[in-house]
């Protein structure tokens, strides 16, 4: 079809975001499937946040799990990240990025919660300074 389509055959690697070249209908249906799943997960997320039907302490966990699932849907259906050998480089870069993200977010929360726990409550601290 185009010169880069031939390059795929020669090199067996895919650029990130590159969709496997199929026929038009299956390519559009792939996006429609992704949109459907994303809408489903988003709607569930918003529904759970505002309902009394589920056990309240489970709501934050459910929202985070739904968010991670939806990010996965976006990666697979919109960014076309696969586990295939033509995507190894993209997946490795993504994995490295995720490690940093978890270190930064998890580490910050852990350290700050620990500090909060070990620190005297603010009002008592103020009284001592007087």
């Amino acid at each position: 079809m185009t010169d880069h389509a031939q390059e795929f055959d020669d090199r067996g690697d895919l650029a990130p975001g590159e969709q496997q070249h199929g026929d038009l209908r299956s390519r559009i249906l792939f996006y429609v499937a992704g949109l459907g799943l994303a809408v489903l997960l988003t709607a569930t997320s918003f529904f759970i946040a505002g309902t009394n039907l589920v056990w309240q302490p489970s709501i934050p966990v459910a929202i985070i799990v739904l968010a991670i699932a939806q990010m996965g849907v976006h990666l697979v259906f919109f960014l076309h990240i696969t586990t295939g050998p033509d995507n190894t480089n993209n997946v490795l870069a993504l994995a490295f990025g995720l490690i940093i993200v978890f270190l930064v977010v998890g580490g910050s929360l852990w350290i700050m919660a620990n500090l909060n726990h070990n620190m005297m409550p603010m009002d008592q601290l103020m009284q001592m300074q007087q």
Partner: peptide
């Protein structure tokens, strides 16, 4: 070139996410 460019931009996006 298409893979080099796309991959480079992918690295930029991941740093943006960081």
């Amino acid at each position: 070139k298409r893979i080099v460019t796309g991959y480079g931009f992918w690295i930029f996006l991941l740093s943006d996410i960081v």
